[in-house]
Amino acid sequence: MHLSTEFGVWVAAFLTIGITSFLYKDNPFYKFCEALFVGISAGYWFVSLYFQNLLPKLFDNLGITRMLGLSEDNGAIQNILAGQWDERIWYVLAGILGLMMLMRLFPSIGWISRWPLAVVVGSTSGLYMITYFQSNFLSQLQKTVIPLIDLNKISALAAGGSLDNYFAAFLGNLVLVIGTLTGLAYFYFSKEHKGAFGFSAKIGIYFLMVTFGASFGYTVMSRMSLLIGRLYFLFGDWLGLIR
């Protein structure tokens, strides 16, 4: 056993145990670690957004840092005043929209913040309309138009194959097509789910359940992985029990 001599490791171990202590029951130790996490996260994001967004993109590009003597590089304002067009001046529009967004802090003029919000919603919708249509609709639809039984894979089976190959050749495409059609049937609400249509919708539910089950399984795996990572840290980096 070789206990870590690094201060940071001890702090991390203290916080890990503090947060996981909630599994036993709520306690002041957990509350302290939780509050610390929330505070540090907020501080980190504030600093990160300032130094990675506001400072380089707005203040540097416009030349505000130059005006304040914090930078030696000319910004758009200095260049334009010197008679040289600088397209970075358009960042001023982003700055104004940003300021308008902050108006929601003042209830009497809070309505102003709806304007920049409208710009964000509009531009995001326009951007995603194309990308989702291409990536999540057309491409997916295209790959659903497939032969029910894959003749190429069947001919490959002649040379010998595993159970996976048999599934791929005879059942894979069939499951995909049935799953897609019955899943769509379940989400079609213009016709009552009765008779043959109701039956196919019910099959669709089973496909959805399998999907949710797979997602849940993956989530369990993910959470276990994170816990393994923390245990490895505690036993290895902190306590030195693992070589």
Partner: peptide, 23 residues
């Protein structure tokens, strides 16, 4: 692993060239 099921359709459609899910 949490995100993997969301991107599996891109693998089947050939939009992704390989996928590693979780640990």
């Amino acid at each position: 692993a949490v995100q993997a099921p969301q991107v599996y359709p891109y693998l089947d459609s050939g939009q992704l060239s390989g996928l590693m899910g979780g640990m």
